[in-house]
Design a protein around this nucleic acid. Structure first.
Lengths: 137, 137
DNA sequence: TTATAAAATTAGAATTAATCTAAATTGAAA
DNA sequence: TTTCAATTTAGATTAATTCTAATTTTATAA
């Protein structure tokens, strides 16, 4: 809770109760939640919370780089507490979104000379081991 | 035109006039168009075309792997004629979506043992050289 | 060729994530 | 306390996508 306030303050974000709760939720739930998941879960302990606040707060966090938006889904954005380099795998069968290790930072590329790169994402799609296992039976 | 029919047939897709036109459009316009861009452009030469057909056809193409969906945008999906390995860069300022060279296939990763991977995407975001240049003035 | 069935296409309604708006609330500084 | 800006709110709006049920087209068999 305290580290959350420190992190917000460090990023020039006034630590209102909602902002603290939302960032705390993302830190403690590394399940790449959607806006609605965050909203519905926090609403229980905070009935006045509105969806607009969740949207506002998340875009604030994204701008500051505390949180990263995942656009691997077709329709809705998921949010990830921004830590070390990793990729995201989506199982097309069960829909589960998992992390995997990949060294994005060291990825060699060409053709972006004089571009400012602020964000790198690696998205893989396919079928996860669980779904592949189930298919055999 | 002929190669388009061959490509569709090879993928077990019956080459109807609309399917040919849509795939042809994607082959000849490497601008990562949205559904609406494709729809509006093709509608001129084919007034009975409906959006639903464009949606149906594109998801058919995606399933066959002829075309790849780009989910780098927040809200809408773009489509890319599926050729060799490359990454996608989105300028957050002007919105332009460009290709760049990156060896996605050789990317080393861990944690996806026994997963079937069908698709790999590398998305970078930032500010393009053009927008950076304009800022200086 | 004609009849029949299957596949493809259509227009428009429905859905829904995200944004917008204008009012209400909160919090900090004077 | 008073004042002003920042934050939050509910609900309306927007727009990409999906759904639905009817229509048209295409292929096949008689």
């Amino acid at each position: 809770m305290n580290e959350i306030i420190i992190e917000l303050t460090k990023n020039n974000i006034k630590p209102s109760i909602h902002r603290i709760k939302i960032l705390e939720y993302l830190r403690d739930n590394r399940t790449h939640p959607t806006v609605d998941e965050i909203y519905l879960n926090l609403k229980e302990g905070c009935p006045t919370l509105s969806r607009a606040t969740v949207y506002n707060t998340l875009s604030l966090f994204v701008q500051s780089g505390i949180v990263r938006p995942l656009t691997i889904e077709d329709r809705e954005i998921r949010y990830d507490y921004n830590t070390e380099d990793h990729g995201h795998f989506k199982c097309e069968q069960c829909g589960f979104l998992s992390d995997f290790e990949v060294n994005v930072a060291q990825l060699k590329y060409e053709g972006l000379e004089h571009h400012e790169i602020t964000n790198k994402d690696v998205y893989f799609r396919g079928v996860c081991n669980k779904c592949l296992g189930n298919k055999k039976s």
